[in-house]
Design a protein around this nucleic acid. Structure first.
Length: 203
DNA sequence: AAAAAGATCCTCT
DNA sequence: GAGGATCTTTTTG
């Protein structure tokens, strides 16, 4: 993966990450997942971003150089992974929301549970991380030069399949169309308006 | 120190 | 498709 591609604003990088591949190697084995859904989050200008109110211990990685992995805990027990974008010193990242398992399906299924249907193995940010094997210990990992988690280019996706829409689960700025996904792909998570989204916003 | 909110997930109707 | 569980991080008094 080219570093210059990632060193751009998150909303420009997000659609370009569709089709790219994340690989995670653990003692258990290797899992590779092709990305089918992303969401862009920027910094102080984005009310829904973790970095909106400045730097904290949790979001520090977002302020660093592009090409690193930002992992955070959501709702107590789920891990969510972002690819850090932009320039060093500014905060922006792309949340990886869903993907299709292309290697290590048995291992991914073992982590997710035997009753999970194949398209759902990496459907949703928390499920994506669980299937891939990403946890807090991967926070800050170098995706371009590291060995545990690697971001690489996959097969190009037709531009006609790329669609944009409102972000999932956010209560602020949910009318920003910063979510990108492959049209008709069964691994893409369903859109759901946040229960706390303000009615004044426009879609 | 205490309270609220949250970039979610699973189950059931 | 809708409803509720769950506990960490952040924010506020």
């Amino acid at each position: 993966m080219n570093i210059d591609l990632l060193a751009q604003p998150a909303e420009e990088v997000a659609p370009k990450l569709l089709g790219s591949v994340l690989t995670c190697q653990t003692p258990e084995g290797t899992v590779r997942i092709a990305v089918t859904e992303t969401e862009a989050y920027s910094g102080t200008d984005d009310p829904a971003s973790h970095a909106y109110r400045g730097r904290t211990a949790r979001n520090a990685v977002m302020f660093g150089p592009a090409g690193h992995l930002y992992v955070y805990r959501s709702h107590g027990l789920h891990w969510c992974a972002n690819v850090v974008t932009g320039t060093d010193g500014t905060a922006s990242a792309v949340l990886i929301r869903a993907g299709r398992v292309i290697e290590g399906e048995d291992l991914a299924r073992g982590r997710r549970g035997d009753r999970v249907e194949t398209p759902r193995l990496a459907r949703g940010p928390g499920n994506f991380c669980q299937a891939l094997g990403v946890t807090a210990e991967h926070n800050g990992a170098d995706l371009l030069r590291g060995t545990s988690v690697v971001l690489s280019e996959g097969e190009p996706v037709p531009a006609a399949l790329i669609q944009a829409g409102p972000r999932v689960g956010v209560s602020k700025a949910h009318d920003w169309h910063h979510r990108f996904y492959l049209a008709g792909d069964p691994t893409v998570s369903a859109y759901r308006l946040s229960p706390r989204a303000k009615p004044s916003a426009r879609a």
